[in-house]
Simulated assay, not measured.
Amino acid sequence: MDDADRWRNMASAPRDGSRILVTVRPSEQGPAEVDVAYWARPDAFGIEGWRAGDSYPGCIIGYADPELKCWMPLPKANLSKNSPEMPTPWEGEDEEQLDGSGI
């Protein structure tokens, strides 16, 4: 995790509840986008799986494994004037190096 600014295979994403950045695949609902997500264990409000970082009980936004293309750790806090915005979604052609194939 020393190279925090590169996209990684979803198979290596942490499943400990920590929040990460994910590339959500493009679909009929819209283009690819970056979201904050975390792995949630089963509870009274849903099954285990990837949830959006802004989910809360009663309003859960879940992602199926094929919806997520890749991940990276959240960036460290940088209070300088030149701190970057959210990274752009990964759109490379070498999909065999990433998890899932999409539909």
Rank of each mutant, 00 (worst) to 15 (best):
residue 20 I to A: 01
residue 24 V to T: 11
residue 65 D to V: 10
residue 43 D to T: 04
residue 22 V to K: 04
residue 22 V to W: 04
residue 83 S to V: 13
residue 27 S to I: 04
residue 62 G to R: 14
residue 69 K to H: 14
residue 60 I to F: 02
residue 38 Y to G: 00
residue 27 S to C: 12
residue 70 C to K: 06
residue 82 N to M: 02
residue 26 P to Y: 10
residue 33 E to F: 09
residue 77 A to H: 10
residue 51 R to E: 10
residue 92 G to D: 06
residue 82 N to Y: 08
residue 4 A to L: 13
residue 40 A to I: 08
residue 14 P to K: 08
residue 23 T to H: 04
residue 77 A to C: 07
residue 14 P to R: 02
residue 41 R to L: 13
residue 23 T to K: 03
residue 13 A to K: 00
residue 11 A to W: 09
residue 78 N to A: 07
residue 49 G to I: 08
residue 91 E to W: 00
residue 63 Y to Q: 00
residue 61 I to M: 03
residue 80 S to Q: 07
residue 77 A to W: 09
residue 61 I to P: 00
residue 23 T to G: 01
residue 37 A to V: 07
residue 31 P to N: 07
residue 91 E to N: 13
residue 47 I to S: 12
residue 44 A to I: 13
residue 46 G to V: 04
residue 11 A to T: 13
residue 10 M to I: 11
residue 58 G to D: 04
residue 90 W to V: 00
residue 54 D to R: 06
residue 44 A to K: 15
residue 89 P to D: 03
residue 74 L to F: 04
residue 37 A to K: 09
residue 24 V to K: 15
residue 82 N to E: 12
residue 30 G to V: 06
residue 83 S to E: 08
residue 8 R to E: 11
residue 85 E to G: 12
residue 64 A to Q: 15
residue 62 G to K: 05
residue 56 Y to V: 01
residue 73 P to K: 00
residue 6 R to W: 00
residue 16 D to C: 03
residue 36 V to R: 02
residue 30 G to W: 03
residue 82 N to W: 01
residue 87 P to E: 05
residue 62 G to W: 10
residue 34 V to A: 02
residue 41 R to I: 01
residue 19 R to Q: 14
residue 28 E to R: 15
residue 41 R to K: 14
residue 4 A to K: 11
residue 69 K to C: 14
residue 6 R to H: 02
residue 61 I to Y: 07
residue 26 P to Q: 10
residue 86 M to W: 10
residue 52 A to K: 08
residue 30 G to C: 08
residue 48 E to K: 08
residue 8 R to Y: 04
residue 20 I to Y: 00
residue 55 S to G: 07
residue 12 S to L: 08
residue 87 P to D: 00
residue 82 N to D: 11
residue 14 P to W: 11
residue 75 P to G: 04
residue 47 I to D: 14
residue 64 A to S: 15
residue 51 R to A: 07
residue 43 D to Q: 01
residue 16 D to W: 05
residue 71 W to P: 04
residue 16 D to Y: 03
residue 95 E to A: 14
residue 44 A to G: 06
residue 94 D to E: 13
residue 27 S to W: 09
residue 17 G to I: 06
residue 50 W to N: 05
residue 16 D to K: 03
residue 10 M to V: 03
residue 4 A to N: 11
residue 76 K to P: 06
residue 23 T to A: 01
residue 21 L to H: 07
residue 38 Y to M: 07
residue 78 N to L: 06
residue 25 R to P: 14
residue 8 R to T: 02
residue 42 P to A: 14
residue 38 Y to I: 00
residue 9 N to E: 04
residue 30 G to D: 05
